[in-house]
Amino acid sequence: MNDQADTAYNFAYLDEQTKRMIRRAILKAIAVPGYQVPFASREMPMPYGWGTGGVQVTAACLVPEDRLKVIDQGADDTTNAVSIRKFFQRTAGVEVTEATTDATIIQTRHRIPETPLHDGQILVYQVPIPEPLRFLEPRETETRKMHELEEYGLMHVKLYEDIARHGMIATAYDYPVKVEGRYVMDPSPIPKFDNPKLGNNPAIQLFGAGREQRIYALPPFTEVVSLDFDDHPFQASKAPHDCDLCGAKESYLDEVITDDQGGRMFVCSDTDFCAGRRASGRKGRLWAPDSAAPPPPQPSPTRGEGGTLPVGLLRDGDTVASVLHGQGSYSREVKP
C-alpha cells in the first residue's frame, strides 16, 4: 500500500460482490476463448469510451501485491493512462510502474507493448466495440446467431470490399482474428501490427467493454489467426521508418508533425520501450541527449508562423508521443 491510497474506498473501488461477478465472467471467458461473455457492467467514475470496461476487469483482477502499468496507445504519460493509473493508486493503493517487464497487470488502450510479455502477466484491453460483425450486420440477435453457427463469411466480405476499393486489405486496426479455429474476435483497436502478438502469448489477455457489457479473453498460448485471403495474405504493417529517438526498426511508430513546412518525425508509440533503448545507449536520427546546459527557452510556436517543436532538445523522460495522443476517439467509436 502506498501513501496515496484512500481507505474510504473498498479495495480497487468496486465492492466485493461486483468483483466476484466480474471474475466469474472472466473465468468463463478464459474457458471459451474469443467468446463474448455478458456481464453486469457498473457505472464507473469516468465516461464511457475512457476504458470503463478495462477498469472493471483490472479492478476484479487486482490484488494488493500487484504492480500496475497503464498505457494509452503505447504511452504511459497520456491523459487516459495517467488518470486510470491515479485512480487505482488512490482506490487500491497498488504499486505502479512504467516498465513492461516489472508489471503484473497492464491495462492498455489500443496497443500491445513491444517488450514481449511473460508468464504470469495479465494484459487488460479497453474495448469500445466487442462485436466484430457490428458494422456488417446491425442486428445483435443475428450476430449472436452467426457466432453460434460459425457463419463468418460476412467478415471476409469486409476484407473483399477493402481489396476491391483499395487494392489491398486496408483495415489497419481492429483487424478481425479467429481464435482457436472457432470464434471470430475483435482484438480492440490495436494496429494490425500487433495482431501477431495476440497468438501464442504467455500472458493472459482480457478484454473488457464497459458500455457494451461484454468480457472476452485469450488464455496463454492461444492460437490466434488474422483473417485474410489466400492471394492477399495478412501483413502486419507499420510506417516504413526507424524511430527518430531510439532508432528502433521493428517497433510500431507514431508520426508526429513538427511544423507546418512538412516537417515530421517518427517515434515509437511504446514510450517505455523507446526510453529503455535510449537508456541503453541507442539513438535515432533526431535524438540529442546530454546537452550540458539546460536549453534556452524556445519561443513558443505561434499558429501560422511555422512554429517548430524543439525536436533536438528532447531529453530523457520527454516523449513527443504525448503530443500526438489526445483522448480523441477513433471514428468508429459510437457516441453514447
Binding site: 463469411g153 471476409h156 481489396i163 476491391a164 476499393r165 485471403f229 492471394d231
Partner: peptide
C-alpha cells in the same frame, strides 16, 4: 456492399478464400 461483394458473399460463406 459493392455488387462484387454481394455476389461473392455466398461464395465466402461456404469457404471461398481466394480473392481472384
Amino acid at each position: 456492399v459493392s455488387a462484387g461483394g454481394n455476389v461473392g458473399e455466398r461464395l465466402m460463406a461456404v469457404g471461398a478464400r481466394h480473392y481472384g
